[in-house]
Computed example of a mutant assay.
Amino acid sequence: MDELRVIEDRLKRLDHVSDWTFALGLHIRLANPTLSYLTYPKEWVDYYTEKQLVFVDPAVRWAISNQGICDWADISDGDASDVFGAASRFGLRFGKVIALGDLDRSFGFFAHPSRPITQEEIEQAQTLMQELHDLTRDALDMSEEELEALREIPVRS
């Protein structure tokens, strides 16, 4: 299996862990992911982008400063801009954050519409994220053309 197919396989496996949606940013550089994969509703992504919520999102703030797994409920006290409330209105009610890597960082933001994400689900996601992080480590040195092939990998069919 070539590298693109392996990455696509891991993304699809990540998508099938649960009936959740997610935003995955691999190899964050200067606050921007080298690769990103989204299954969040387009309406939420548009709203989040328009309101520039990345600058006040407690999940992003946590991911920048920590490694591991965090439940949105555990950081909701720091949500002065009500990002989690807005997310809930778009069906992203229960969420978890995964942050991994030391200097070369990757973040995953997972949300479920109707129930808390289980420990087993988030551990599977963490394992798959680590595999994706490792598989795409060379992305930092790729040409824009090579990156484009990785960016076009579909998460959902």
Rank of each mutant, 00 (worst) to 15 (best):
V6A: 14
L11A: 02
L26D: 06
I98A: 02
I153G: 00
Y37C: 11
D71L: 09
D79I: 13
K12Q: 15
E145T: 05
E3Y: 04
V83F: 00
A80T: 12
D15M: 10
M129Y: 01
Y47A: 02
Q67C: 03
I69G: 03
E152N: 14
I64Q: 15
I98W: 00
L147H: 00
S106T: 15
L30T: 10
L128K: 04
S65M: 08
A23E: 01
A111G: 05
R93M: 14
F94R: 00
E131H: 12
K96L: 03
Q124D: 13
L132G: 07
D134W: 05
Q67R: 12
R137F: 12
E131V: 02
L100T: 12
V56E: 08
L4H: 11
Q126F: 06
R93G: 09
L100K: 05
L103N: 13
W72T: 07
E145Q: 14
A99T: 05
D77A: 15
L103C: 07
L103S: 10
E145S: 09
R115F: 02
E146Y: 08
L147V: 09
W44I: 01
D141C: 11
E120F: 06
L103Q: 12
D9G: 02
W20P: 01
I69E: 03
L35T: 10
I117N: 09
V56D: 03
E123D: 15
Y48I: 11
T21E: 09
A125Q: 01
T127P: 00
A63H: 04
D19Y: 02
D77F: 11
R137Y: 15
A139K: 01
G25T: 08
F22D: 01
R105V: 03
A149N: 03
T34M: 12
L128E: 11
I75A: 02
V155N: 03
G85A: 08
I75L: 08
E8V: 02
L26W: 04
L128W: 10
Q67T: 08
A63I: 03
R105Q: 11
A59S: 14
G95Y: 15
I117K: 13
T118M: 15
D74K: 11
L4Q: 12
E148Y: 01
A99M: 08
E120C: 08
G68Y: 06
A59F: 01
T49W: 12
R137A: 14
E8D: 03
A80M: 14
I98M: 04
R29P: 03
L150N: 04
A23L: 10
E8H: 07
R93H: 12
L26Q: 02
R137M: 13
S65N: 08
P154R: 12
C70S: 10
A63T: 00
